[in-house]
Simulated assay, not measured.
Amino acid sequence: MQNTIGVDVSKAMLDAYCSLRGEHRQFPNGAPGLAALVRWASRVAAVIVFEASGAYHRDLELMLSRRGGGGL
């Protein structure tokens, strides 16, 4: 089974859930939080999915695309 991390994106927070581990984490929606989310996701080799709503997902989208399109 492929590990998936779902991210609920809001102006202030990124709420992430790792399906394989059943683990929930929160990260601030800004550069330090985005970097922390990517480091965390990289340790569990996950595909990250999120809903593109409003403009609050743009930085996450950009960071993931720079790292290979979201599959870490």
Rank of each mutant, 00 (worst) to 15 (best):
M63D: 14
Y17R: 07
I5Y: 02
E51I: 00
A52L: 01
L62M: 15
G69L: 13
G71K: 10
F50Q: 05
G54K: 00
S53W: 07
Y56Q: 10
T4N: 08
V47G: 09
G71H: 12
S42C: 09
V47Y: 06
G22V: 03
E61K: 08
G70Y: 01
L14E: 11
G6P: 06
G68W: 02
P32S: 01
A12D: 15
A41R: 03
R66C: 14
P32W: 01
A12Y: 12
H57L: 04
A41P: 03
E51K: 02
H24D: 14
A52C: 02
G33D: 03
G71I: 14
R43F: 07
H57N: 06
G71Y: 09
E61P: 13
V49L: 10
P32A: 00
C18G: 15
V38R: 10
G22P: 02
G6Y: 00
D15S: 13
P32N: 03
Y17N: 12
E51V: 03
L72G: 11
A31R: 11
G6Q: 07
E23R: 07
A55W: 04
G69K: 08
T4E: 12
F27A: 05
D15K: 06
L60T: 10
H57F: 06
A45E: 13
G69Y: 06
A36M: 01
Q26S: 11
V44R: 03
H57W: 13
T4Q: 09
G54F: 01
V9A: 11
L37M: 00
S42I: 05
S65P: 14
G22Q: 06
L14K: 10
G69S: 09
S19F: 13
L37I: 07
I48F: 01
E23M: 08
D8A: 00
Q26Y: 04
A16G: 05
R67E: 14
H24N: 11
V44I: 09
Q2Y: 07
A36S: 08
G71E: 15
R67M: 06
V7A: 06
G69R: 08
A41C: 07
V44E: 04
V38C: 11
S65Y: 09
L72T: 15
Y56L: 10
L62E: 15
D59Q: 11
D15R: 08
K11M: 10
G70Q: 03
S19Q: 14
